[in-house]
């Protein structure tokens, strides 16, 4: 019975981890067709910003966390303008060389992986140069919940709640706001959306900003429970983009289902065989999913739906 609770809590933990890690990336991948391998470093920026805000500026954690998100969002917008769309360098080159020197990375999946990996190297090592090999971390707030002979960190339950809240908020953003409607139209048919007056350039800039902000928020949220070092993004990166790809084209549902399925596998195998095996199991499950469900889980669901519709 207690082991059941342990497992349930571990699942909640894994779910929260995957959803929070993947959410920002899913939005960027879904709308822009860009795979941001510097995603882990955006998480790093959020984590360091909020930690340093608390330790050096004395800002309370509850305020520092959103600050981490916002700073990362701004950095994301900068990245989008300079690297992803190349708008800023092209602006300069148009006026000096009379042509564009950068082609945007939209829908160039392989190139965006390589280019953003370059960015991630710069950010990781830049952080190391600026702040050293580690900085002081924060203590986990709230303390433990006790049940029977076991205890569990309350904060991790808070994280799980936040991850669910995030899914709900993203769902709301996509289905009830005008921005969300235009974003979905852009995902479904980018060209026609432009013909309908959607400024796709601005939308991409905002999207990347939101996606980065979410990554930064994730970093800030996890900061009190992980070691503060320049490579902290690594533990999030692979799981997050595996979750995004396995999730499929639907941003909210895909991330939720990935979180559920992959999270369950991660929790069960970690519980039984330890964290290394747990991670391997998650990755192997992802490999199998990628092989047999090339459009991800929600892509597969969509295909079933279409087939059912056609037979009606």
């Amino acid at each position: 019975m207690v082991n059941g609770i342990n497992l349930a809590l571990q699942f909640l933990d894994s779910f929260a981890f995957i959803v929070l890690a993947a959410a920002g990336l899913a939005i960027i991948f879904g709308i822009m067709g860009v795979i941001n391998l510097a995603h882990g470093e955006f998480i790093l920026i959020g984590a360091y910003t909020s930690t340093l805000s608390v330790t050096h500026l004395g800002i309370p954690l509850a305020v520092a966390i959103p600050i981490g998100g916002v700073v990362t969002a701004l950095f994301g917008i900068l990245t989008e303008r300079v690297i992803i769309s190349g708008a800023v360098p092209n602006y300069v080159s148009q006026r000096t060389l009379d042509r564009d020197i950068i082609e945007p990375l939209y829908d160039r999946l392989a190139d965006s992986m390589v280019a953003t990996f370059g960015l991630s190297l710069i950010l990781t090592q830049g952080t190391r140069i600026a702040f050293g090999n580690s900085i002081d971390g924060l203590s986990t707030p709230f303390g433990p919940i006790e049940y029977g002979a076991f205890s569990y960190s309350t904060y991790r339950i808070v994280l799980a709640a936040v991850s669910i809240g995030l899914l709900v908020a993203t769902y709301y953003l996509f289905t009830r706001t005008e921005f969300g409607m235009r974003a979905r139209a852009t995902i479904q048919d980018k060209e026609t959306a432009r013909a309908m007056g959607v400024d796709t350039e601005r939308m991409y800039m905002l999207t990347f900003g939101i996606g980065s902000g979410l990554a930064g928020l994730t970093g800030a949220l996890f900061a009190p429970v992980i070691t503060m070092r320049p490579t902290l993004g690594d533990q999030f990166l692979v799981e997050s983009f595996v979750a995004v790809v396995v999730g499929g084209p639907s941003v909210v549902l895909g991330t939720a289902l990935s979180g559920g399925v992959l999270g369950a596998i991660l929790a069960v195998f970690s519980n039984l065989y330890g964290t290394f095996i747990g991670r391997i199991a998650l990755l192997v499950a992802a490999l199998i999913a990628l092989r047999f469900l090339p459009d991800g889980i929600t892509g597969f669901i969509e295909q079933l739906r279409k087939r059912r519709q056609e037979s009606e």
Binding site: F241, G274, L290
Partner: peptide, 28 residues
Amino acid sequence: MFYGGVRDVYVTIITLVSTIVMHTFMAQ
């Protein structure tokens, strides 16, 4: 991958994931 019909960037992702699997496995 190839005989399973996996294409383009998904091949790349599978190769990357395989590397991490090997890393995690050998590390323990």
